[in-house]
Computed example of a mutant assay.
Amino acid sequence: MSPLSPSSHRSLRMLAIILLALLCASASGNAIQSRSSSYSGEYGGKGGKRFSHSGNQLDGPITAIRVRVNSRYITGLQVRYGTVWSDYVGGKQGDLEEIFLHPGESVIQVSGKYRYYVKQLIFVTDKGRYLPFGKDSGTSFNAVPLHPNTVLRFISGRSGSVIDAISLHWDFYPSHCSTC
């Protein structure tokens, strides 16, 4: 094997620098993308059938929330994204409560209580509103986005005759929304 010439060494060094620059640019782009979304949860028990509103977020930001509550648990949940309501999840027992967000208002924190099922949900908005549903008993949780200027974009979890568990998904407020 013959030794490399000085020009070959320069070419290899240049190639290594270019590859390193491309690798750094790719990692930087992925880091920027990953800094917008985050996930909180899962809060609750292990039962129920999985649900997710991930596709609903394409209809726009969260604009209203319906929660069904009985004397002990959150039994049902439905969220309006833009002008479209998600599928209802959960049971039919209890009182149905409905809250509409103001135009441009977003949920920036969700706290609550759970044991084997979700017992309480408290939505806090960027306009300072505090929207409580359910009973104040059980293990506490407090969910906030990991990244600045992000809001609640959609909900997932598990449900049967009640809301067994809930997860919160955070990202930027949609800039492409024509119904916001």
Rank of each mutant, 00 (worst) to 15 (best):
S5F: 00
S5A: 12
P6R: 10
S8Y: 01
H9W: 13
S11M: 12
L12I: 08
L15Y: 11
L20M: 13
L22K: 09
L22S: 11
L23W: 03
A25C: 12
S26L: 14
I32W: 02
S36W: 14
S40Y: 03
G41K: 01
G41V: 07
G41C: 09
E42T: 06
G47R: 05
G47Y: 04
G47V: 04
R50C: 08
F51G: 05
H53V: 01
S54R: 11
S54E: 08
N56A: 14
N56S: 13
L58T: 14
D59E: 12
I62V: 14
T63F: 01
A64C: 10
A64F: 04
R66W: 06
R66Q: 13
R68T: 13
R68C: 11
V69C: 08
I74D: 08
G76V: 13
G76P: 08
G76N: 14
L77I: 11
Q78L: 05
Q78W: 06
V79I: 14
R80W: 01
Y81F: 04
G82E: 00
T83R: 00
T83S: 11
T83P: 03
V84P: 03
S86R: 00
Y88T: 03
G90N: 05
G90D: 05
Q93D: 13
Q93C: 04
Q93F: 13
E97G: 07
E98K: 09
H102Q: 13
G104K: 01
E105C: 08
E105L: 09
S106G: 12
V107T: 08
Q109C: 12
S111R: 15
S111E: 12
G112K: 06
G112C: 09
Y114G: 13
V118H: 03
K119W: 02
K119I: 10
K119C: 10
Q120W: 01
Q120N: 02
V124Q: 14
T125K: 04
D126H: 06
D126E: 14
G128H: 10
G128N: 01
R129L: 07
R129Y: 13
Y130N: 12
L131C: 10
P132M: 02
F133R: 00
D136R: 05
S137L: 11
S137M: 07
T139F: 10
A143E: 08
V144L: 06
P145W: 04
P145D: 02
P148G: 00
P148E: 01
L152E: 08
L152T: 09
R153V: 12
F154N: 15
I155V: 15
S161D: 09
H169V: 05
D171W: 12
D171R: 06
Y173E: 10
S178N: 06
